[in-house]
Structures are given as C-alpha cells and as structure tokens.
Design a protein around this nucleic acid. Structure first.
Lengths: 341, 341
DNA sequence: TCGATTCGACGAATCGATTCGACAACCGAG
DNA sequence: CTCGGTTGTCGAATCGATTCGTCGAATCGA
C-alpha cells in the first residue's frame, strides 16, 4: 500500500509538500501540484485514516446507536439507519453501527477509543442512561427522539411531535363525526421502557380526549400475536361500539387488519382506521389516512445537529431542539361513520 | 483524555509496561499489573483506536455495503444489517455502513484508507462490479448472496438456495393438488439489476415446472402500486384460473392481499398463497405457509467468512461457499384447491 | 547592485500505542 | 564468590499524515 512518502519520492518532493497539495492549506506551485497528482494517480494513493485521525483527533465517523431489545426488531429503524448514513456522507462522515442491547458500554467504548466524533441516539427513552454516559466525557451527541424535555436541555434533539400527531389523528376522527374512538398505542414493552414516542403518543390521545370531549379509549398494544388478537376482539366488541381506530403500533398492522376482518367489520365502512407514523416501505400504507413520519427530514436534521455539536465543543451555547409538526400524508381522508352503527 | 503515558506515570512504570499488561504478551509481575490496573481505572483510560490501527494495520472494523437504489428501500436489509452488526461484535469487530448507491467508489475509499479490514457485500448481482473493485486491492471480502457461481470461485459467500426455495414452494403447491400455479417473482428492477436472489428464484420456478409438469406461470413484480394491481388482476383473472400463488416479492404483500380481496377471492379457499422469504418482523407473516429465510444464521455465517478472509491474507486456499437449504417455516401448510374451481 | 520582501518547498516534531532489543536484579550451581 | 540463566521492566524505533518554523531562491524597488 502506497504511503505519502512513496508519493513524495515518486514526485521528487517532500512528504509535507504532498500533504499541502492535498489539503490546500498552503500555496504550492502549479507544476509541483501536477507532479504530485500524477504520482498519486499512478500509485493509487489514499491517505490512511488512522494516521490522519491520530494527528488530528478527528475520525470523521459518527456512531449510531440502534435501539435493540433482544428478539424484537422495529423495521423502521433500518430505514432511519440508512437515511442517517446517507445524510452523514453529505457532511463527509461515515456511520458506525452500535447494536448492543442497551448500548451504554458500547457507546463508552467507542467514545473513549476515539472511533467516532459524535453519537446519534435513536429511540430515546425518558431518563435515558446513554445520555448521561456520553455527557460524562463531553461526547458530542444528538438525539433522534426525546424523552423528557427538562432532562435534555443540554443535548440537541429532533423528534416528530408525537403528542400533536396522535392528537391530530383523533381530532380528524372526531371532525369526521366519530364519537367513539380507540387509540391503539405503542406496545407495552415500549411503554414500560418509557420510549419517548410511546409516552408522548399516550399524552396526545388524552389531550385530544379532553379537548374534543369525545370518548377516546386508550389501549396499549403488545408484541404477542395471540394476546393482541384477543385484546382487539375485546376492545372492538365493547359497547357502545367504536367506529374509529387510531393505530400507532404499526408493526403488527397486517395482524390487526386480519383480526378486524375476522370480526366481520369492513374498513372503513364499519371502522375507520387511521395510522400514526410510517412503515418502512410505502406499499404497506396504501389506502389509509395517515399522519406522516418525516423520516428523511428527521435524519437530515439529526445529522446536522450531531455535526454541529462536534464543532461546538468549545463554545457550548444553547442546544437546539426541533419538534416537527405532524401533518396528514397525502391520500384518503377519514371516512364518516356509517349512520347504521 | 488519558493516554498510555498518563497511565504509566501514574502507575510509576514505562508506557511499554502498560501495553504489556493490557495485551498480556509479556510476563509482568502481579504487583506491577495491579498498579497499572488501578491507574487505568482511576483515569478511565481506553487505548486510542487510531494509534493502535496505525501501528498494527488492523482496524477491527468491517464495512457493510447496503444495497441501495435511490428511492427504493428493502426493509429486510435493515434487519440483515443489525444481525450482521451483532455477529461482528461477537468477533470483536465493529460495523461501518456504506450506503452509497452502487458503492464501488465508497468501497474503494474505505478499503484504501484502511478504515475497515474486510467488506461484507449484500444483495450481490451477477458480475457485480464491487467484487472486482475489491479484488483489485486484495481486500478481504465475503458476500451475502451470490450471482453467478463461476464468477465467484475466489470469494467466499453465503446464500439461501433461492432456486431450491422457490422450487420447494411450487412443489408444495403441486403436492397439495394445485395444477395452475402463479409465481410472483422479484420486481423488474431487481431482475434487470441481475440480483442473485431474483435470478435464482426464476430458475427455481422453471425447474419446478419441468419437474412437476404443472402449469407454472412466471410474472415479475413491480415497484409501481397501480401497475402491480393491474397486472395481478390480469394474471389472476386468466383462464384456466390459477389456484395457488407463490410470492417472492414480499414488500408489497399488503397490496397484493388487498387486490386479491378486491377481486373477491378468498385466501386460501379460492387462492392458496405461499411466501418465499421473510419480512423483517414476524407479525406480517402470520397465517401463510412460507419458505423461511434464515436471516440470523446467514448473518453469522457471512461474518465468519469475512473474519476468516482477513486472517487468510497470506495463505489464500479455496474460498468457502455456503448454500443454505430451504425449509418450510413452522406454521400452516398449503391448502388444497377447492373442488368447485 | 544590494537589501527587503515574497514565494515555494523542506525538515522535523508530533499524535498514541506496540514491540524488539537491552539491561538490571536476582536466582542457583559450580 | 562468580558465572550463566531467568525474570521483569525500560527505552527507543516505528506506523503515516499533519503542521509549524525555517530557509533558499526569485522578485522588486531604490
């Protein structure tokens, strides 16, 4: 493998000159620069990242903490990971994945070894231990999602306003004429882990209930298919019968739809279904009114915050928080309840 | 940030001694080792990865090339990425994501900069240009998926035997009594990109047709929802009517099921549906007979091959290929055709 | 023609960990 | 009491790129 010394020799100059040609931080004559560029091309030279990092204390790498509970997989996370990686490349950064279950040890290791310059944390929970661990070293961090706003004033984050999103979904139902609405919240394990989106979604449903005066029944979802079916049967069979279902837990959507069909309910005639969030691919979402999750915008924003946090090492300044307003995705609107029910 | 020198000073020893305590490559007295360990704990020392890499020419990082076509996202890839990252940690490696569209430049950059020690390539296509690019530098590589076996004798790979998988699905249909089977293949853009799984799936359907003598009609899928619906209408409406549908393109499964329902066909009474492969989460797969895609086993295997390839720099030896036999996932079996049709 | 200034390139120090050769201190054997 | 052999630790070189200080050559005005 060619080094800067080899290039220098071949071009008949000093290694420092090669470095200056590459960085452009000092003026080099056109003639010399040409010779250097030729030598680089002939040798297929590329600077060794480790040497550069050792000298500059910058690795040009972001570490992405992917949330993980053993055996559970949220398909959306893969989509976010890829979008974040794309956005990071736009700033000249590569992305390292960190998939250890609660990730505190892994993040500590990567922060202290200098493998990465900043961290992006997904699926933040209230009082998230990863945040404290990174703050210990003053490691630049940006969050995708947020837990409790008071705890995170010093850390920048981006999030969809899940409270507003769920509230909007409920309001749309009420506006269409529905009086009895079910909110099918995040799964129990997400709620007990106090994930931000799960907690804020619950808040939104409660707020909308108060504001609209409608009958909004909140039920947590579950990862267990049989339990989910049973619970759904019970909830949809209750009287007075709900005519609208707002779903935040999209992962088992096919299962939910199948159970609705098994109960003999037609969508949307007997039961209007409104989704909050996105599935990783658009195919799965056809035909439902839906509050959009702006994945790509969120990824771009969180990378920007992370990169900015690296530069802001010296002058901290106030952390930026970006709470994105929810909006209906283009597509169908909420159907009116049928008069017969 | 503490360095090895700080630790050495604090423990009253030389830096080299600290290094030996950590690596265990020379004998150090118990007393000295204890002092060193104490100093490490007090200072929160962790060796700088860049310095270690510079010296040893090993980064302990794998680069994962995630397939990407702008605007298209295969949810399964995220699942593979996470499983691969987990498996890599088991060998002491971290995983860097490479998401540039066709990735040749990105891989070249990472290989030459020494950011990673080996590459794992997902969604290999026939005559994949990435393989040639990496072979140029003798960069250790392992493939998840394979294109043409003759081209890849020198590169280790792991793959599900897609040909056998699709053939198995068709045979199961025929065994259940179906005479008219539709194979809904990968999407057109995957076929024209000559992705291995797409090509081998087609081969499997053709082979099973010949072997069983049944009427097997092969149709490519598409990423365009409206086109997909139209094509499906035509295919399922053709006479004699197909009674079984083998689906390899699982991404738009909800759309496919919706269109089947819209045509007034009941599953499985009027049309048996058999899936080949997996969706990222198990919820989406309830209730269908299915040929399993062993994601976790494949991830473990491909990481093992990549790690082995790093060591095998010197003595190449024959590359290992692992073609995994397909099997039915636990769950329902293929329904018999109804006598009325 | 000479001193001052600018331009372009060089040399050496530096980042932090690893590893080889060397060297004390200590042991037992002759 | 000394010599050969361990045992445990140290010092210095090394990996490859960056960057600061320096210095020779070219340029310009007086």
């Amino acid at each position: 493998m060619a080094t800067i010394k080899d290039v220098a020799e071949r071009a008949g100059v000093a290694p420092s000159t090669v470095s200056y040609v590459l960085s452009g931080s000092r003026k080099i004559s056109e003639q010399t620069a040409k010779a250097v560029h030729e030598a680089i091309a002939e040798l297929g030279y590329h600077p060794r990242a480790s040497a550069r990092t050792l000298r500059s204390a910058r690795s040009e790498v972001l570490v992405l903490a992917v949330p993980r509970e053993p055996g559970k997989y949220r398909a959306m996370d893969g989509r976010f990971a890829i979008e974040i990686s794309d956005a990071a490349r736009g700033h000249g950064y590569d992305v390292l994945m960190m998939t250890e279950p609660d990730g505190v040890d892994g993040l500590r290791r990567i922060a202290r070894s200098g493998l990465a310059d900043a961290a992006v944390l997904m699926a933040v929970r209230e009082a998230d231990p990863r945040i404290a661990a990174l703050r210990e070293f003053g490691f630049p961090t940006a969050l995708l999602g947020h837990g409790d706003e008071r705890d995170e004033t010093e850390v920048p984050w981006v999030d969809l306003d899940w409270e507003a999103a769920v509230a909007l979904a409920v309001r749309e139902c009420v506006a269409a004429g529905h009086r009895h609405v079910v909110f099918w919240a995040s799964a129990e394990h997400e709620i007990s882990a106090r994930r931000g989106y799960a907690m804020h979604g619950l808040d939104g449903a409660r707020r909308a209930a108060v504001e609209t005066g409608a009958d909004v029944r909140v039920h947590p979802s579950t990862a267990d298919p049989e339990l989910l079916r049973a619970r759904l049967r019970e909830v949809l069979g209750a009287r007075p019968a709900p005519t609208a279902l707002v779903v935040q837990h999209l992962i088992p959507l096919p299962l939910i739809l199948d159970e609705i069909a098994a109960l003999g309910l037609r969508v949307p005639e007997d039961l209007a279904v409104v989704l909050v969030g996105s599935l990783p691919d658009e195919h799965a979402l056809f035909a439902f009114p839906r509050i959009d999750l702006p994945v790509s915008r969120m990824a771009t924003a969180v990378v920007q915050l992370a990169v900015r946090a690296i530069g802001a090492d010296a002058e901290p300044g106030p952390a930026r928080h970006e709470l994105m307003s929810p909006g209906m995705a283009p597509g169908p609107v909420v159907a009116k309840p049928s008069p017969s029910r």
